[in-house]
Amino acid sequence: MKKTLALCMCAVMGLSILGCGSGQKDTTAAPAETKAPAETTAGAETTAASEATQAAAGSGQDWSKQDIQVAVMWGAGGALDTTIRAMAPYAEEQLNTSLIVTNRTGGGGSIAMQYVDSQPSDGFNILAASEGGQLVKVMDTGAMDLDDFQLINIYGAGYGVVLVAPDSPYNTIKELVDDILANPGKIKMASAGTSSSPFAINAMMTSVHQTSPNLITYDGDNAAVTALMGGEVDYTAVSMVSAASYIKAGSVKALALISDEPMAELPDIPVITDTYPEYQKYLPWTTFWGVWVKKDTPKEVVDELTEVFRVAADNEEFKALLVSLGATPMNLSGDEATEYSNHYKSVTSWLIYDSGAAAKSPEEFNIPRVEE
């Protein structure tokens, strides 16, 4: 298993260059296919996997008859790609088959969704997706979003965080907000695409404070952080996955976590609700990654895959990888996972629409606005 983790950590190093989550640019020209390495676990993890295998046998599905295809909606090297490839061996152990991970990028995730939707509803085709898949309809980049699929597991999430340079005059989120309000259109913020973390967090801040910074668009979260460190902008707000290593190194200063609870790995970052309780209605708000199958997949197959990925997401080495990325292990399934995904969809769809960036109104798709 040390070999698996070592390979995954090599891939993690590429995140500082390639980006992650919904702010990642589609760069893969053709589907990139990889067979995930098969490894074994020991001790309690082996016992848990054995129990999951026994429970899974009830579906009657012979998983060993063919490989499982995993369609990843973002490109190679990003957080979604890195984490699903790291998770695959733990699912393979239980299913006695291989997971073939292929990057199928484009259309804000719609290409991967279209591919899985075109395949049989037997569980042999899995969609690996991030939160950006919930914005496809309002952004009008495709006809389906993640609610058109059966959610199996949300295994990891990345909190938003507001960043400034280490030598910035801003030492609190209030100081930053007050200066933006005092100097409308002058304080420069590094943003990214309209479905990215920086754009959504700025829309959230605008909704709460009526701030109007000078938005400068970069190619994804990581490029926004790089611009901040290069002195091109005054601040940015990104997913923690793009920021954790820089915060730990002292290369950036974190003013606020977009959360009402501190992050275990970086507990000294103030949570934004301590200063502005008005953010509570938007929370929890994170980027996230998970696995889905076709909506009409038989219940017994869904139940089996749910248990398999629950055990995989609970693997200690996998959770350690998530933490090393700056992510938070989640392992949500069933109604809890659906509620989490739909809350993000409601909050972010309306924030983007209110900012004028959405192509269609969330109301057109019966997406409720979050309550006060």
Rank of each mutant, 00 (worst) to 15 (best):
C10S: 15
C10L: 15
C10T: 15
C10D: 15
C10E: 15
A11L: 07
V12E: 03
V12F: 03
M13D: 13
L15A: 09
S16Y: 05
I17K: 14
G19S: 04
C20A: 13
G21R: 00
S22L: 04
S22G: 12
G23C: 00
G23W: 04
G23S: 03
Q24P: 14
Q24Y: 11
K25S: 05
K25C: 07
K25R: 02
D26C: 09
T27M: 14
T27C: 08
A30T: 10
P31T: 05
P31V: 05
A32L: 10
E33A: 08
E33R: 08
E33N: 04
T34C: 11
A36W: 02
A36Y: 01
A36L: 03
A36T: 04
A36H: 02
A38I: 06
A38K: 10
E39I: 14
E39L: 14
E39T: 12
T40E: 12
T40M: 11
T41S: 13
T41W: 07
A42K: 11
A42M: 11
A42L: 10
A44P: 00
A44Q: 10
E45I: 09
T46Q: 15
T46Y: 11
T47G: 11
T47D: 13
T47N: 10
A49F: 01
A49M: 07
A49G: 03
S50L: 15
E51L: 15
A52F: 04
A52G: 13
A52N: 06
T53G: 14
T53L: 15
Q54V: 14
Q54E: 14
A55Y: 06
A55K: 05
A56L: 12
A57V: 08
S59W: 02
S59L: 01
S59R: 02
G60V: 08
Q61Y: 12
D62N: 13
W63F: 11
W63L: 10
S64P: 03
S64K: 04
K65C: 14
Q66M: 09
D67C: 04
D67W: 08
I68P: 00
Q69V: 10
Q69L: 12
V70L: 10
V72M: 05
V72A: 09
M73N: 01
M73S: 08
W74D: 15
W74F: 13
G75N: 03
A76C: 13
A76K: 14
L80T: 04
L80D: 03
D81A: 02
D81G: 09
T82F: 09
R85S: 07
M87P: 01
M87N: 01
M87F: 07
M87A: 09
M87S: 05
A88Q: 00
A88H: 01
A88I: 02
Y90F: 09
E92K: 01
Q94D: 04
Q94E: 04
Q94I: 09
L95F: 03
L95Q: 06
L95S: 03
T97N: 00
T97G: 01
T97H: 02
S98L: 12
S98N: 12
V101A: 01
V101G: 01
T102R: 07
T102A: 06
N103S: 13
R104C: 09
R104P: 04
R104D: 09
R104S: 07
G107S: 10
G107H: 06
G108V: 04
G108I: 07
G108P: 00
G109P: 00
G109S: 07
I111T: 13
A112Y: 03
M113T: 10
Y115P: 02
Y115M: 08
Y115R: 06
Y115L: 11
Y115F: 11
Y115Q: 07
D117M: 11
D117H: 14
